Simulated scan of single mutants.
Amino acid sequence: MRVLLKACMDTEKANEAIRNGTLGKMLQESMEQIRPEAAYFTTDHGRRTAYMVFDMEDSAQMPVIAEPFFLQLDAEITYTPVMNAEDVQRGLAQLGR
């Protein structure tokens, strides 16, 4: 299932990770693990935020993916199922006419 991961990082923890050089490494390792089809980095409500769209093959992946963000960045994590345009078209084709 295609999923949007939103990770809002604690500012102090992220500042510390930048200062000690671990933020970039942690993000790179996370991206290598989940292999997102898209990844965006911005701010949300004044906090550093990562958005990654990826294929979640098993819900058991959720803790493995989230824990580095929780442990290292005290992040708030959300997982949201999402569709691309092709997915929407396939879904609509399944509706009764």
Rank of each mutant, 00 (worst) to 15 (best):
Q28S: 10
E32Y: 10
E12G: 09
Q33N: 10
Y40E: 12
E32A: 14
A17W: 04
L23W: 01
Q33G: 07
T43V: 09
G46C: 03
E12F: 00
L23Q: 02
S30R: 00
G24M: 03
A39T: 14
M52L: 11
V53M: 15
A17R: 08
F41L: 13
K13I: 02
D44C: 12
Q33V: 02
A39G: 08
M31E: 05
T49K: 03
R47V: 02
V53R: 04
Q33E: 13
M26G: 00
M26T: 15
T43H: 09
A50K: 00
G46P: 04
K25V: 15
N20F: 07
A39C: 13
Q33F: 15
N15K: 13
F41Y: 10
E16Q: 13
T42A: 15
T49G: 02
A14V: 01
A50V: 12
E32N: 10
A17N: 06
Y40C: 09
G24Y: 05
E12H: 08
I18N: 06
E16A: 11
A14N: 12
G21C: 05
Y40A: 15
V53S: 07
K13A: 12
E37K: 11
G24K: 04
T43K: 10
R35H: 13
F41Q: 09
P36T: 04
L23D: 02
D44M: 12
T42Q: 11
R19E: 14
Y40P: 01
A17M: 08
I34P: 00
L27P: 00
K25D: 10
I34C: 04
Y51S: 02
T49P: 03
K13T: 03
N20Y: 06
E12Y: 03
M31W: 06
T49S: 14
G21Q: 04
G24L: 01
